[in-house]
Design a protein around this nucleic acid. Structure first.
Lengths: 153, 153
DNA sequence: AACCTAGATAGGAATCAATCCTATCTAAAC
DNA sequence: GTTTAGATAGGATTGATTCCTATCTAGGTT
């Protein structure tokens, strides 16, 4: 698929989402949407703002926050709150979980379909109805482990 | 056990923790420690500050934050980051998980020892070494469900 | 029991993410 | 093209958290 076609597909998808929600398809929303889809990690609002600055130098950070909040309602992103990190936005819509490096704070996705399907313990049903589950695993990532090992003496 | 004995036990525990870490046992640290142990929920720094104001009217909010950070290092509390909520501090040291009401944001603990012991999927070991796991379940709590039902017509 | 001193606190100032305000702009319906 | 409800820009504001520094104190010393 050409990049022209990819662009068209992206635009169509957002057009569809916006019209379904009854909101306008603005240049800003389109750009932020594209920025999210091309992001391979979990960007913060400020990262997105910075990455769009070259193309749209007048875009306000408030617009990024507002648009991300809108996208959250549309189900395009989910908020991520990691200790000592600013709020991150996850454009990965598939059901997934997070591995967080307690040293460098990098966040990696992983999948565990068997767990997603498994029953939760009795105790939980007593607390209320469940909408979703998210597993957060803390540890040290490969990169940081390699740093520890370092070059030999 | 009398409340006098309970107090003594609390004081001994903190004394031990502080001397092990080589830090001073101050009045403020003791009070915040006690406030945490008696809290049945997950208080914010400001809640703790408010609850101690009557007894220690000069305590600075900064001291609460600093002390909670110290306690986190000592392993006395864990930080909790819930969407759209201020940072909460969890004094529950047992291995446990959280049920978060997406409506009222109340956080409830639950336990799942079988899951704590279960193996994580292959994918995770590729990402790094695991230190801990925490399951976050979102849903609607009993109280909010009852509100929905409301009084009949 | 007064003395020392490294570490701790109080109080106010500063920071920083996030949101609000409002005049202006624009997508999209007519 | 006109209209208008909803959206944005840019600056101001809020609110949680942290920093600064003069003062204080826990806990070891004599």
């Amino acid at each position: 698929m050409s990049s022209q076609e990819l662009y068209q597909q992206t635009l169509d998808r957002l057009k569809q989402l916006c019209s379904a929600a009854g909101i306008k398809l603005t240049q800003q929303r389109l750009e932020i949407f594209q920025g999210l889809l091309t992001a391979k990690d979990h960007p913060s609002a400020e990262q997105i703002h910075r990455s769009l600055r070259a193309k749209l130098p007048t875009m306000a950070i408030d617009t990024v926050y507002r648009t991300l909040a809108t996208f959250e309602k549309l189900g395009v992103v989910k908020k991520l709150h990691i200790a000592n990190e600013r709020t991150l936005f996850d454009p990965n819509l598939e059901n997934h979980h997070h591995f967080i490096c307690s040293r460098c704070k990098r966040v990696e996705d992983f999948y565990w379909p068997d767990f997603d399907k498994a029953d939760l313990p009795q105790a939980v049903s007593g607390l209320g109805t469940v909408q979703e589950r998210h597993l957060e695993v803390q540890g040290i990532c490969r990169a940081c482990l390699n740093e520890d090992a370092g070059p030999g003496p």
